[in-house]
Every structure is written in structure tokens, then in C-alpha cells.
Design a binder for these strands. Structure first.
Lengths: 243, 243
DNA sequence: CAGTGGTCTAGACCACGCA
DNA sequence: GCGTGGTCTAGACCACTGG
């Protein structure tokens, strides 16, 4: 391990943060693992304890680590898994109650991205993406029609994507492709159900729906998924709190 | 000013945070004011610079203060005023650009609340509310049709509500009724424009729109406003970030 | 230039979790 | 009892802002 640059314009604690994030990215440490203590980092990188502490505290602030007094510092689960766990990827969507979620994969194929998708995923002109189209159901009723676009270079084996029936897409990213989704941007607007969507969503043309666009980013800030969802308006209600 | 308790179980930086927050609450310092520097706080309260720094940094984290290197530390505006400022009350709604917002007041009158409104505002059976219905425009085009329901007991003089043309409702609450709105809950869902709304929103029946319901709370957690908005779907796009 | 916040060091004592 | 994180001190040098 290279030493930190003590004469750099980049603060030591910031360099140390990058090292720690790097180790998580590379998979040396995974969620739940204990990372070295403040004293160990201090010796290992030749900084004071306050500096190693500051690096850790910032990462705790970012939700990447968590600490337990007397025990140690640990790698946290990606935040998105906390809020987007299991079913939809949208933050606070829910229709109360214990839904029985189920996904039907409609297609998985390599496509040429539209310019909108290419821009969102920051792709070069010639790069392809994998499109996965899913119908997301709860209690065997369709709620969401969703297409995920994933840069081809992040999906080592598209066959693996079929597993999204069993585990969530972001768990799959982390386990199969070694990509941890840590943040996302969303935009949404109300729309009407289109004729070609009625078949899947089992509703009528012109009914209210929400169009949701999400771009998901890995720990380095690189976009790894662009997702377009049509959400049935009669079955979902969205909540937020402002504090 | 009493000294801090150096032998308390409560950390010094935490006590100092309380003192600073207290000074803001009591109005000694108001948004934009410069507060004492780290060195001044250090001398004044008999702590080390790192301790006064930590207190300030925590308050910056909470959004109560902000710092500018070389200039000083300043009191920030309340968070809700940052996100709900001026025009809509919804957090991240915007259609980019410099809108020229304008509200048209359609009516202000005392009404008997529906059970839904009574529940949201936690009212007794016999309590009345003031309804204020507004058409909210930008660049002279209607965007939002909005009804605010306010418990009668918080509005000492309904005439004052007419001022919402000039200042925001929450500024009015604070200045006229001495109520500081500090949090809110929102729920939204896609709907279709109804016939009776077309006249105001200058659009056609059946077009996509967003129905937004917001309950606003004062600093004690008491609900002070329930608001129902119809937002034109073709003119607004909503953004959120998940981090 | 003096004052501010930003970074960093080298110490210290404490409360907590665990063996 | 030892290692952990939590708090705290007393210094230091730096970059930035303003007069």
C-alpha cells in the first residue's frame, strides 16, 4: 500500500477516505466487515489519530461506515438498499400493507441506447446497453412496468440478470458485478397510460400514471443504471416528509 | 452568560451547541448574522479551539449555520424556507429557469372541514377552518390550483391572508400569527384534470396532473395547514436525489 | 496586514464491550 | 484488562478574505 502524500494539496483525511472507499469498492471489505481501528490506520498511514478519526467520521456521515463504541468501525450496507429495499426502487412508494412482490421479466436484450439514455449513462457513441424490461407485481396484480438500461461493460454476463426474480437488482449488482449502488437521481411526472402499456398493466388507455426516471450511481459516481418506470396511479401513493 | 459545566456528563461541544441554538431561538442572532469566531467562543466559554470548532461543525451539519473561509460563521435560514421558499411548497418541484411567480386568490372563506381535513389538522368536531383557494401562476400561466385549509384558531384575522400575493404563506404565518412552520408531510399521486378545474388551469379535462396533499406543522408538532394542490403535469417535473 | 476557517499533530482521560 | 471509539487540550501552519 502506497503511503499518503503529505505534501499534496488534497487533505490527508480526504486521501484516507479515498483509500477506505477504494478498499470497499474493490471488495476487500464488504458490508458488516470490521475495518482497522483509528490507531491502526494512524500507524499504517502515518497520520495522527485525529486525522484517521476525521476520515472515518466523514464516511460515517456519508453512510458508508458505522461505528459502535467499544467494538469498532464497520462497513455499512449501501443506503439505497435500506430505502429501496426489495421491491420498487422508488424511495417512499408504498401502498401500506404487506405486499407480496413478484417480478415478471419480459425481455433482456442488448440494444443501442437512445441519446437520452446515452447521456444519462455517460456512454460513448458506440457503446451498447442491456435492456431489461420487467412487469413488477404485488399480490399478482401489476403495479409497475419498468425498463432498466445497464451499460454493457458493467454486465459481465447478461444471463445473471435473470436472477432478479429472486434478489433485487442492486443486490445482484453488488454480488455478481461487484458494483455498489450508493446514490440515485430521480425525476417524475404524471402521464397517461398508453395503449401499448395497457396489455401489461391491465388497465385502460388514458388512466393516470406516474412516469419515473432514475439514474443510479456507484460509489465512484459513475452511472450504472438508467431506469424508466410507469407506475399505475390507482394503486400507488407516494409519501415524503420535509424536516 | 453562565460558564459551561466542565464536569457534566454532557460533552462540552454539545453544551456549546445548545448555547448557540439558544441564542438563535431567542433572536439574539438571526439568519445572515455573523456569530463569534472559533477563537472568540474558545475564550468566552473556556474550551479549546477544537471543541468550539466541533460545536460549530455539528451545527453546520444540521443546517443551522454555514461557514465561509476567511470570513466567518453565519446563521442559516430555516431549512423549510430553503426548500419551500417563495412559490410552491413542494420540495424539489421546478421547471428550471427564472419563473415569475404570481398568485391569484380565488376565495378566502370560513368552511366546515371534511372529515379528511379534520383528521389531518387534528381538529375537534365543531371547529371550523379558513379555506384559501389560489391559482398559482408563473409567467402568467397557471401551474397549480391550490386550496389551503387553516384551523380558525390560528388565523387571528383572515383579512391578513390576502397578503399572500406579496409574501409567502409561511412567512405570513411567522410574521402575523407567530407560527413557525418547521416540518411537513406530503403525499401525492397522479390524477386526471377534472372538468371543474379546466377553467382555472386552462387545460383540457383528462390531462395528466399531480394531486399533492400537504400537512404543515409548527415547531411543537401541531398541524397548522392542510393543503391540496392540483399540479399541471405538462408544466412541471419533479426531482429528488437519494444519497 | 490581521482575522477567519481548514488542516494536522501529539498527547490525554474517559466510557464502553468483551473475554 | 485491553482495545475500541468519544471527548478534550494546546499547540502549529496554511489558505482565504478583507481593509
Amino acid at each position: 500500500m502506497e503511503p499518503l502524500k503529505h505534501d499534496s494539496v488534497i487533505p490527508l483525511y480526504h486521501q484516507l477516505m479515498e483509500r477506505i472507499k477504494g478498499s470497499i469498492e474493490k471488495g476487500h471489505w464488504t458490508p458488516g466487515d470490521k475495518i482497522p481501528s483509528e490507531n491502526q490506520l494512524m500507524d499504517q498511514f502515518g497520520v495522527s489519530r485525529n486525522t484517521s478519526k476525521k476520515a472515518i467520521e466523514e464516511l460515517v456521515q456519508e453512510g458508508i461506515l458505522y461505528r459502535i463504541q467499544g467494538k469498532g468501525t464497520f462497513v455499512a450496507k449501501p443506503k439505497l438498499q435500506q430505502s429501496l429495499m426489495g421491491f420498487y426502487s422508488f424511495s417512499k412508494v408504498l401502498k401500506e400493507n404487506g405486499l407480496n412482490p413478484k417480478d415478471i421479466i419480459l425481455k433482456i436484450e442488448e440494444v443501442t441506447p437512445t441519446s437520452k439514455i446515452r447521456e444519462a449513462l455517460q456512454l460513448r457513441e458506440d457503446e451498447h446497453v442491456i435492456e431489461m424490461k420487467r412487469l413488477r407485481c404485488a399480490n399478482n396484480e401489476p403495479y409497475i412496468l419498468e425498463s432498466s438500461f445497464i451499460p454493457k461493460h458493467v454486465v459481465s454476463d447478461p444471463e445473471q440478470l435473470k436472477k432478479v426474480g429472486e434478489i433485487s437488482l442492486y443486490d445482484l449488482f453488488s454480488q455478481q458485478f461487484n458494483i455498489v449502488v450508493t446514490s440515485a437521481k430521480e425525476a417524475f411526472e404524471p402521464v397517461l397510460i398508453r395503449a401499448d402499456e395497457t396489455e401489461y398493466l391491465q388497465t385502460e388507455e388514458g388512466r393516470p400514471a406516474l412516469l419515473l426516471e432514475r439514474t443510479a450511481y456507484d460509489i465512484t459516481g459513475k452511472p450504472v443504471e438508467f431506469c424508466i418506470s410507469i407506475v399505475r396511479g390507482d394503486r400507488c401513493r407516494f409519501y415524503t416528509e420535509l424536516t
